[in-house]
Design a protein around this nucleic acid. Structure first.
Length: 514
DNA sequence: TGACATT
């Protein structure tokens, strides 16, 4: 099994030019013309409001006058080949104006290029131009999806105007959905969720410019009709907040197929004690295991990622309480914003079991039984975006043949390191783990223990006859302290109905049974 | 549950 790491710098690279008067960025709503731009729009009667959606003006949240030119917009750039650094990307974006800051996102632990960037022009207008010219308009070499150029989540607000639409016909396109919703307001974003194969998952996100519009669409459309082939009537509701999504995915993962990341599937009591360790895991998972990672994992992991202070060496800063009581989840779980990048999210969806109704397990159920989140942390949003993009882009790793994009030479691809060359670590570094979820393989096992240090090997034992996991395995660290930290944190850790048993591997000469 | 780097 191959594991993909980058050992390059752990620092984020920033390209920045001096640009005066950009201090006000990051606070305003963006006059976005995002998502679908249906063609042949003359076919359908349109309201006056809806034409507004095609112009960079927003009737809500008008900006103060005189601020426009230097009220920079931070753009999120997605679907960037991982071999392109700031210097490579700069020419592509400079044609729309002077760049104030361009930052390729790197995993903070592995240094791995996350396939996305943040871009801030000196002039607001440049950002709008760039978005209009590039967003979904061209595909960079090696990528399977078109480039994403849209306001960073730190720029957008109001997930209270974003709708989840379920029970669509899988033949329905963005344009179909757009037309369905356009009578109710200005649509800023309309995205059908699709699997890796490009097939619709039968659901979509539609973002209106105002909450009122979104609400009116719900009132008019929810349950109003049943699409051909759908098992029940149309579902139109406000999209989940992260908190809701986290909870839902935890529940679903536990119930359906075990889990990938214990932090997600676990009750909050253990979740909270483990959470700060998962900060690191989140980043690593997002950056290195997109092909395996389900979005249900990526969401919460990314949230956890920005909770609390980090302890770089992976050791828990406080004594762990593996099976602690009934503490509440950290309050800031709910503070991150739902990313506006919708299209990229779906691309990383691999291995998600589908429910009998044919809907993806993760997206199938959206309710709004929880209060909306109150605050939005740009950092959280950024992290989510990073996680998403990391997930998504690893479904299409480097192609064997890489074209030279935008006239640049190509840096080398990320390092691919074969793991498990060394099976056992030194004495005191090897853990025996029992009660692993049936679904856990070497990879998942490794990820579960990565937060505690450098994992030099991970092995889940498989039944030869059935090829099923025997639910135990080994993890080896490169130092005993990591191993001890892992024992402290993970022994007794509840996953679904089981609790992990994490012990030092028995020395070879010890044959005593338990 | 079942039990320490296998086939």
């Amino acid at each position: 099994m191959l594991y993909i790491f980058s050992l390059s710098s752990t620092h984020t690279h920033i390209f920045r030019t001096a640009c005066p008067n950009t201090g006000s960025r990051g606070t305003g709503a963006y006059p976005a013309t995002q998502g679908v731009r249906p063609e042949g729009e003359g076919d359908t009667p349109r309201t006056g409001r809806q034409s507004v959606a095609r112009h960079p003006k927003r009737d809500s949240n008008p900006r103060p006058t005189g601020e426009q030119d230097c009220d920079a917009i931070k753009l999120f750039i997605g679907q960037i080949p991982r071999n392109l650094e700031e210097k490579d990307l700069k020419p592509l974006f400079e044609q729309f104006g002077k760049i104030h800051e361009l930052t390729v996102l790197k995993d903070r632990y592995t240094g791995m290029h996350k396939g996305c960037a943040f871009l801030t022009y000196c002039a607001r207008e440049s950002a709008i131009k760039a978005q209009n010219a590039l967003h979904e308009q061209k595909t960079l070499p090696g990528m399977t999806r078109p480039i994403q150029v849209k306001p960073a989540d730190s720029e957008s607000r109001g997930e209270d105007r974003k709708l989840f639409v379920g029970m669509l016909n899988k033949q329905q396109t963005e344009e179909d959905v757009y037309r369905l919703f356009e009578p109710y307001g200005v649509i800023e974003e309309c995205t059908v969720l699709r699997g890796p194969d490009g097939n619709s998952k039968g659901c979509a996100f539609v973002k209106f410019s105002t909450h009122t519009e979104a609400q009116s669409a719900i009132s008019a459309l929810h349950g109003s009709q049943t699409m051909p082939g759908a098992s029940s009537s149309l579902v139109v509701k406000f999209a989940d907040t992260d908190k809701e999504r986290t909870i839902r995915r935890m529940q679903q993962m536990v119930g359906q197929f075990g889990i990938f990341n214990p932090a997600i599937a676990l009750p909050f009591s253990t979740y909270s004690t483990y959470a700060h360790l998962m900060q690191q895991q989140a980043a690593i998972m997002a950056a290195t295991h997109g092909g395996y990672l389900t979005p249900s994992v990526a969401f919460p992991a990314a949230q956890i990622h920005q909770m609390g202070a980090l302890n770089i060496n992976g050791l828990p800063p406080t004594p762990m309480t593996p099976v602690s009581g009934l503490s509440s989840p950290p309050a800031n779980i709910a503070t991150s914003a739902v990313p506006s990048i919708v299209t990229p999210i779906v691309n990383g969806f691999t291995g998600i079991p589908h429910q009998p109704n044919g809907h993806p397990a993760v997206e199938a159920v959206y309710t709004n039984g929880l209060p909306p989140y109150s605050a939005q942390s740009p950092t959280a949003a950024d992290t989510l975006q990073q996680a998403f993009t990391g997930v998504q882009q690893y479904t299409a790793i480097y192609p064997a043949t890489t074209l030279t994009p935008i006239g640049q030479t190509l840096p080398q691809p990320p390092q691919v390191i074969q793991q498990q060359q060394q099976r056992e670590g030194p004495e005191g570094c090897n853990l025996f783990i029992y009660h692993l979820p049936q679904e856990f393989g070497d990879n998942e096992l490794m990820q579960m223990f990565l937060p505690f240090g450098t994992v030099i090997s991970s092995k889940v034992f498989m039944d030869r006859a059935t090829n099923q996991s025997k639910c135990f395995g080994f993890v080896s660290f490169d130092n005993p302290a990591s191993a001890q930290a892992a024992i402290q944190a993970m022994n007794g850790f509840q996953i679904g109905m089981k609790r992990l048993k994490v012990q030092l591997k028995r020395p070879k000469d010890a044959s005593r049974p338990y």
